[in-house]
Design a protein around this nucleic acid. Structure first.
Length: 539
RNA sequence: UGGGGUGUCGCCAAGCGGUAAGGCCCCGGGUUUUGAUCCCGGUAUGCGCAGGUUCGAAUCCUGCCACCCCAGCCA
């Protein structure tokens, strides 16, 4: 259920479309820097950018913002493409900011010619000192009035590699006393003698975000440049560059709030730290809020899209509850996942009156969706049920097994617990009797068991590792300053369980283990399952 | 104390002068061989606070308050 909604950005786009202001149609772009993996916050942006384009028969660019070669890597550009496609979106054009390096250089040259930019020889430290503070204006650089000729000469020598890193920069000539610090002669170009993953050693001067982004948007004819709130302060600079560098098209920048999610962090920097410090197994650790992590966890693209739609797009700061994501995951898997039985904490059950050897029972893969067909279930006199499905001291309304009580084994027979075998205070085995005339589908026993319980046949079941995950952090709003202390020390636990053989034989990766939750086969390890999300528990 | 933003139910979020949508969570009840799903029903006399304008204000005005972002040659 991915119904579109009318948020303020879609409303704005509707107006622009209706007023005929968009001769080129709706054109958006998703512009990640290839310096890490995408997370669910990016998914919100992806759903928005690709979504509005699809809704308006427009198109979307996937543009890698690769202007800082020191931090970027080709492996990330592959991972990002993979994640965007997996989410269900495709781009009209794949571009890189570096595709435009030559044009960008020309626009910077324009700025110099128009006396709107200059080469500044201040050190980073000096520049910082002269920038002023939030409440005090900055001071003009002593190099601010260099002649056009000298600036042109210097800029071309910068490009030619005649200066070392940090020796010169190109700055916009705006207003050192602006209340908006971004307008205090921001740096447009810096020198970096670093090999770029795409342009190699062609360049040693690289443009900064504020100069690059707006021009790339213009060159690609982006009709609506959507970004997050922290760039609101940059909008005047975005507009200034477009207006002053003689770019002939001016896209509007519109900001929305980034996604916040409880009990996790949503910044590439912090996620990278978790990976680098070995706190998680990698970018695709199932506890990570990355697309890769969610995928490995068993979360589906449809669930993520639905989540993004339900969260909406506004300018409000937010931190969405995990509840909502969990709901979306169950909501999607409920329809599609095959049902099966898996026992996470086995308790041996011996049927004392069983004489049939191994019986092949049948059960539907999905009780509400016959189209999924059925599978056979081996049944025998030695079974495992869940430890938590037996109680020595059952509470009121107990719907499971207890001494002298009866339950139905799902798709099998009704059994009664006759004897409890203890080892100290541990229940180690249940001796039960079964009722031959209670077979599922042909029950003539007239018995009324407490409830229904899942099980596997001990000899036919397959031993598997089951990974269960809790929230990665123990506080709802972990911060950089206390990242390690905020971690949940019990975010993963491993159980040695058993699943019915049909689950491993099936091609499917996602299953519901009845009465337990949704699980998926781990993409990296055989005989391993990741718990995606539990079922709701209604008592 | 400068500039830019935001404040509607526990969490999201509609609303744009006519008397508080919806979703998640939660609480009741029904169906059920998953205590699941599904289905019914309930949950803000209140919209950051205080004044004002108006027949009428979450929506307009004034003044406060709270929170977020900005002083990278990161994006």
């Amino acid at each position: 259920m991915e119904q579109e909604s009318r948020d303020f950005i879609r409303s704005r786009i509707d107006e622009d479309v209706q007023s005929g202001a968009l001769p080129g149609g709706v054109v958006t772009r998703f512009p990640p820097e290839p310096n890490g993996y995408l997370h669910i916050g990016h998914a919100k942006s992806i759903c928005l950018n690709f979504g509005v384009a699809v809704e308006n028969a427009g198109k979307t660019y996937l543009r890698f913002d690769d202007t800082n070669p020191a931090k970027e890597d080709e492996s990330f550009v592959q991972a990002i493409q993979n994640d965007v496609r997996w989410l269900g979106f495709d781009w009209a054009h794949l571009t890189y900011a570096s595709d435009y390096f030559e044009e960008l250089y020309q626009f910077a040259t324009n700025l110099i010619k128009y006396e709107k930019a200059y080469v500044c020889s201040l050190s980073g430290e000096e520049m910082r000192k002269q920038r002023g503070t939030l409440t005090e204006p900055g001071r003009n650089s002593p190099y601010r009035e260099r002649s056009v000729e000298e600036n042109l000469e210097l800029f071309s020598r910068m490009r030619a590699g005649q200066f070392g890193d940090g020796e010169q920069v190109v700055r916009a000539k705006i207003d050192m006393s602006s209340a908006n610090i971004n307008m205090r002669d921001p740096v447009l170009y810096r020198i970096r003698h670093v090999r770029h993953q795409r342009t190699g050693d062609d360049w040693c001067v690289y443009p900064l975000y504020d100069f690059t982004h707006c021009i790339c948007d213009a060159l690609e004819g982006i009709s609506h440049s959507l970004c997050t709130l922290e760039f609101e302060d940059h909008r005047p600079l975005y507009d200034w560059v477009i207006e002053n560098a003689n770019v002939n098209y001016h896209p509007p920048q519109i900001e929305f709030s980034r996604l916040g999610l409880e009990y996790t962090v949503m910044s590439k920097r912090l996620l990278a730290r978790l990976v680098e410090e070995g706190i998680v197994s990698g970018w695709d650790d199932p506890r990570m809020p990355t697309i890769a992590g969610l995928r490995r966890r068993g979360v589906t693209p449809a669930a993520i899209r639905d989540f993004c739609a339900r969260v909406g797009v506004t300018k409000q700061e937010n931190r969405v509850e995990m509840n909502l994501l969990d709901f979306c995951v169950r909501h999607d898997l409920e329809k599609s996942a095959r049902r099966g039985m898996g026992v996470l904490e086995p308790l041996k059950v011996t049927l004392t009156n069983w004489t049939e050897g191994v019986l092949q029972l049948e059960g539907p893969w999905h009780a509400q969706n016959e189209a999924l067909g059925s599978r056979t279930l081996p049944f025998s006199g030695t079974l495992y049920i869940e430890q938590s499905d037996f109680s020595l001291a059952p509470p009121k309304k107990w719907k499971r097994l207890a001494r002298g009580e009866m339950v139905r084994l799902r798709y099998g027979f009704i059994i009664r617990c006759d004897e409890v075998v203890m080892d100290g205070d541990q229940v180690v085995e249940l001796k039960c009797s079964y009722f031959p005339d209670s077979r599922s589908g042909e029950d003539t026993s007239g018995l009324k068991p407490n409830g229904v319980v899942h099980w596997v046949s001990a000899d036919q079941a397959v031993a598997v590792k089951i990974y269960e995950y809790e929230r990665l952090f123990q506080v709802a709003d972990p911060t950089a300053g206390s990242l390690l202390d905020d971690l949940n020390p019990h975010s993963v636990s491993i159980k040695d369980g058993f699943v019915e053989p049909a689950i491993l034989a099936a091609q499917d990766t996602h299953f519901q283990f009845e009465r337990q939750g949704y699980f998926c086969k781990d993409s990296e390890n055989e005989y391993s399952f990741n718990k995606t999300v539990s079922l709701r528990e209604g008592f």
